[in-house]
Amino acid sequence: MTAADALDEALAMPLVDQHCHGVRRDDLDRSAFERLITEGGPSPAGTTHFDSPVGLAVRRWCAPVLGLEPYAAPEAYLDRRRRLGAEEANRLLLRAAGIADFCVDTGVAADDLLTPEEMGRLGGARAHEVVRIESVAEDVAGRCPPATAYAAEFTEELMRRADRAVGLKSVIAYRIGLEFDPRPPVARDVTEAAARWLAGPARLTDPVLLRHALWTGAEIAGDRGLPLQIHTGFGDTDLTLHRVNPALLTDFIRIVPAPIVLLHCYPYLREAAYLAAVFPHVHADIGLTVTYTAASSARAIAEVLELAPFHKILFSTDCYGLAELCHLGAHFFRQSLGAVLTERSGEWSPTDVVRIARLIGADNACRLYSLPQG
């Protein structure tokens, strides 16, 4: 077997999608589909989100999975999807991704999204839950406990949900950014903030309660050896990009007791790679970045590989709503990582190249999340 053949074989292995969401179980019209291939809002009048890197990728790489020629027109693609039905389209696309394990963030609760179990069934994979910390806090607030009891009830509920999870996740980046006071708040401040919030519980945006939730999750994750995923970088318009640079977490990282996974990271890929290089408990994820940079994703992967230790880099798709995003995340990961590793074939031995591909594609996640290998 040649070195190129060995690399191809390694890249064809089943992947561990260490961060994703449920996909829609219902049939979608064009407007709904286009809203799910962007992190932004509707396209301006007379334009389409199919005219984007990910939109073109759907036509090139997803169309053949659904039985169409590459580059099928958007109308033909969506018509074929409707004729197949959502369940069959999801099954074809999820299985084409070649995923062995889905680690599903269940923080977006919606009846129209597949559960982790359904993702696993349709994708022919194992499925595991990642618990979103802020969603648990909002669930507890919905019970309207006394402010003096909020912290204890939240801790108890998060511990209960962590019992069945492989990891925890925070979206504090969306709520207040990553420039927060890195220290845990004192109990009195938590009670006072809870009293204000519980007077009319809604979306959690209070900085004190967000820090309390993050630290409660970090301590539970540290005690149980669970990874704590933190959104950084690229996302929808609910965040402010310059405030979600992972480097802003440095002081928190210095004192946090849990393994940290920096999610997405784009465009701050080098900052994330640096943090993974210098802090033993920090890992860098390339999900979402690879999908949305699509044909240019090799450059993004190369940035992370410049500095981050290879045992600290994790694959994910961060698919949400569309099984297409799962398939594209896996496709561009394999294609682009293969291109980057091939460029380094004169510098790294064929054995090392294969080992690095396996580490990033599955082995790192299996180790971090205590998942079965193979």
Rank of each mutant, 00 (worst) to 15 (best):
Trp197Thr: 12
Ala202Leu: 04
Leu204His: 00
Thr205Lys: 13
Val208Cys: 13
Leu210Gly: 09
Leu210Ser: 12
Arg211Ile: 05
Ile220Tyr: 12
Ile220Lys: 08
Arg224Trp: 09
Leu226Asp: 05
Leu226Lys: 09
Pro227Thr: 03
Pro227Val: 07
Leu228Gln: 04
Gln229Met: 05
Ile230Phe: 02
His231Asn: 07
Asp236Ile: 02
Leu239Glu: 02
Leu239Ala: 14
Thr240Val: 15
His242Thr: 07
His242Arg: 14
Arg243Asp: 11
Pro246Glu: 08
Leu248Lys: 05
Phe252Cys: 06
Ile253Cys: 12
Ile253Pro: 05
Val256Cys: 14
Val256Thr: 15
Ile260Pro: 10
His264Cys: 01
Pro267Ala: 12
Tyr274Gly: 09
Leu275Cys: 06
Val278His: 10
Pro280Gln: 12
His281Gln: 15
His283Tyr: 15
His283Met: 11
Ala284Asp: 00
Gly287Tyr: 00
Leu288Arg: 02
Ala294Ile: 02
Ser296Val: 05
Ala298Ser: 11
Ala298Gly: 08
Ala298Pro: 01
Arg299Pro: 00
Ala300Asp: 10
Ala302Thr: 00
Glu306Gly: 10
Ala308Ile: 08
Pro309Lys: 14
Pro309Asn: 02
Phe310Met: 14
His311Gln: 13
Lys312Asp: 10
Ile313His: 07
Asp318Phe: 05
Asp318His: 07
Cys319Ser: 15
Leu322Glu: 04
Leu325Ser: 06
His327Met: 06
Leu328Val: 04
Ala330Thr: 08
Ala330Trp: 04
Arg334Glu: 11
Arg334Val: 08
Gln335Leu: 15
